[in-house]
Amino acid sequence: MSSMSKFRKLAGISAFAFAAMTAVNSASADNWRYAHEEYEGDVQDVFAYKFKEYIEDNSDHTLQIYRFGELGESDDIMEQTQAGILNFVNQSPGFTGSLIPEAQIFFIPYLMPTDMDTVIKFFRESKAINKDFPKLYSDKGLELLKMYPEGEMVVTVDEPVTKPEDFANKKIRVMTNPLLSETYAAFGATPTPLPWGEVYGALQTNMIQGQENPIFWIESGGLYEVSPNLVFTSHGWFTTAMMANQNFYDGLSQEDKKLVQDAADYAFEKIIVHIDGLAEEALTKIEEASDEVTVTRLNDEQIAAFKARAPQVEEKFIEMTGKGGEKLLKQFKKDLEKVQKE
């Protein structure tokens, strides 16, 4: 499917799909519904289908999966999950940040390492991830089942960037996330919140001059076609979260709760294998598809210029989240320090 075809496909919630979904809801409690934010074959889609595989191989339950655009944008599928229409949802903290401000911690630049082994170990062992975040999600009617990384963030721009000053007068698309806006303001750009469905067209018409995403998503969404200069800034990893409607989860039998938890663990292990080498594969596809693409990898000195602007984003995070956020950040850093020492 071409990039433009993917975007044309998104036209809000399909009345037919919505009607079919709600009909199934009333017909069988054993047919569960799961929506995510990505396209066929992307990381969240692979995770969802591994989750489905485990559920259906180990029970009589079935799982219906809805991909990006089939039930609307990210905000739509979260609302449907909170309303109990969907049982499961996969949504990144970039969109959950307005609901759970502390989830924006993943958008503090240069907080997370970028080498995969350290990142994976952090997600496995972090107290902040595995103990503190579930409580924050539960307070919003969501059972957090798994947080997992998708890939290093890469910026695409209308021309190569090597220093903060290069971002001057450039509108960079950000998710509807206040802290991410703060990050790009600190980097010297003009942050421009846009829903995903509008990004390709906005780049094509020069309404915006850049955006950030993992490289596999840049390839899958065809963003390099309209924003061909790829900049590896080493400022963080894209993180996502898979969760369930709290009332639905609480109403499950102990056996089914264990089934769901085991399925999430199974999908996590499979996705870690899947993302290993995925970025390199996606970059190769991009370079083979376009002669216009440039790749800029910042050196240590160049990174230091961007990293020097990170503390003001951290201060903003604490301002937004108060003492609770400050405590979470301390735990986050403690967890990172531990895995980096090991």
Score class of each variant (00 low, 15 high):
D117G: 02
R309P: 06
F216Y: 10
W217R: 15
I303Q: 02
A185F: 06
T296G: 01
N130T: 08
R309Y: 08
V89R: 08
F317Q: 01
A20E: 15
K338I: 07
A308Y: 05
N299I: 00
E219G: 02
K330E: 12
E326W: 04
K285S: 11
A168T: 14
F332N: 05
Y66T: 02
E73Q: 13
P109F: 00
K316D: 08
Q80G: 00
S138V: 00
K270G: 07
Y266Q: 04
E198C: 00
Y137K: 02
Q254L: 14
N25Y: 06
I65Q: 03
G251P: 05
L179Q: 05
T183E: 11
V155M: 15
D75I: 13
F187Q: 05
S181N: 05
A264T: 07
K131D: 13
K171A: 13
A83N: 06
T294P: 02
A279M: 09
D262H: 07
T233Y: 05
F306K: 05
G41M: 12
E143I: 06
Q64P: 05
I286W: 01
G221L: 13
F51C: 07
S3R: 14
P113G: 08
H235S: 00
G325W: 09
F332T: 03
N87D: 15
Q204G: 11
L336D: 01
A244I: 00
F187Y: 02
D250Q: 04
F332I: 10
T118P: 01
L329R: 04
Q302I: 05
V154L: 14
A279K: 07
E102A: 12
V43T: 08
F167H: 07
Y224I: 04
K9E: 01
E150R: 11
E255P: 06
N213H: 15
A267D: 05
K323N: 12
K163V: 03
L230V: 00
I129T: 02
S26Y: 02
S227Y: 01
T284N: 09
I55E: 07
T205S: 15
A48I: 08
F68H: 12
N90T: 08
I275K: 10
I271Q: 12
I105N: 08
Q204K: 14
E125S: 14
D300R: 01
N245R: 10
Q246A: 14
W217C: 13
E255L: 11
K330W: 05
S234P: 03
E56S: 12
Q312W: 00
L71G: 06
I218Q: 13
L230Y: 06
E315A: 02
E319P: 03
N25F: 07
I129N: 11
T239V: 15
A15P: 00
F122H: 06
I272M: 13
T192N: 11
F317I: 08
A308T: 03
T321N: 02
K307Q: 01
S92W: 04
N169D: 14
A263H: 00
G94I: 04
T176Y: 13
Q254R: 12
A29P: 02
K140D: 01
K170Q: 10
N206M: 11
A23M: 13
K327S: 10
L99M: 11
T62V: 03
A244H: 02
A11S: 15
E73S: 13
M243S: 14
E40R: 00
E212N: 15
V161S: 03
I129M: 14
K170M: 14
L329T: 04
N213M: 15
G97M: 00
E182Q: 09
V295K: 01
F107I: 09
Y54R: 04
A35C: 03
N245H: 14
V273A: 10
I13Q: 12
P214Q: 12
Q82W: 11
